[in-house]
């Protein structure tokens, strides 16, 4: 029988993968994908807690909002990355390093 713990474990795994992706990737799009993984890990948590927790729809509603927000963030994020590509001709975060100190 699959219970709450299984879902939480999967969510933790996805969260760890997302964090690992964010910390190791040098490509801006790769980092954005890592952020999506983190958001989806949180979504799994919300749904699992809502399924096994109190009989309200709070968790599901949060998940829907987070999916929407992830899309909004991706829109702004991709526009910024596109701007970076036009300016620097690269989307590597190290190639765009001009501000230091």
């Amino acid at each position: 029988m699959i219970g709450l713990t299984h879902y939480l474990f999967v969510a933790l795994l996805v969260f760890a993968l997302g964090l690992f992706c964010v910390l190791t990737r040098r490509n801006s799009l790769g980092i954005l994908m890592g952020i999506e993984l983190i958001l989806n890990a949180a979504n799994i948590n919300y749904l699992a807690f809502a399924r096994f927790g109190p009989a309200t729809y709070d968790g599901q509603i949060v998940a829907i909002f987070v999916i929407m927000l992830a899309a909004a963030e991706a829109v702004v994020g991709l526009a910024i990355v596109l701007g970076i590509y036009q300016t620097f001709h690269s989307i590597d975060v190290e190639a765009t390093e001009t501000l230091r100190g």
Partner: peptide, 20 residues
């Protein structure tokens, strides 16, 4: 452009971690 990219990436990670 660089400011926006850094803000976006750091901010996205921070708010994602907070959501978790």
């Amino acid at each position: 452009s660089e400011a926006a990219l850094k803000y976006l990436l750091y901010g996205g990670v921070a708010s994602g971690v907070m959501l978790f």
